[in-house]
């Protein structure tokens, strides 16, 4: 099983319950299903709102899978593990 490292960027805005939930959900899923093969970057748009414009972020939280291409976006607090996995197609790639 040669799986590439995934680069995941999670956009949040401050310490809101949804943001905190999304961060912990993402960390847990990644650790369970692809330990060691992921990089998570959390960007707080409240600190750096220009990035919202640059990356065209509307909803919070938004998870962007930058690598591997194609880029994919998931919005929400990632509370449904199955769906997150399907959406990221973590199992196939």
């Amino acid at each position: 099983m040669q799986q590439k490292t995934k680069k995941l960027v999670l956009y949040v805005a401050g310490q809101t319950p949804k943001s905190l939930a999304a961060i912990s959900n993402l960390r847990r899923i990644c650790e369970e299903h692809m330990p060691g093969r992921y990089v998570i970057e959390v960007i707080d748009l409240r600190q750096n709102p220009k990035l919202a414009r640059e990356h065209n972020i509307i909803a919070i939280p938004t998870l962007v899978r930058e690598l591997p291409v194609p880029m994919r976006k998931i919005i929400g607090d990632l509370s449904d593990e199955e769906k997150v996995l399907v959406s990221l197609r973590l199992g196939e790639e």
Binding site: K18, R46, P49, R53, A59, M71, K73, I74, G76, S79
Partner: peptide, 27 residues
């Protein structure tokens, strides 16, 4: 301020809000 909405590349899982829009607007 161009808010591009592209439904195809989006999946929705769980709760979310439009804080990004607010932040961009505020900026």
């Amino acid at each position: 301020e161009h808010i591009l909405v592209d439904p195809i590349e989006l999946a929705e899982i769980g709760e979310y809000d439009l804080e990004g829009l607010f932040l961009r607007l505020e900026l």
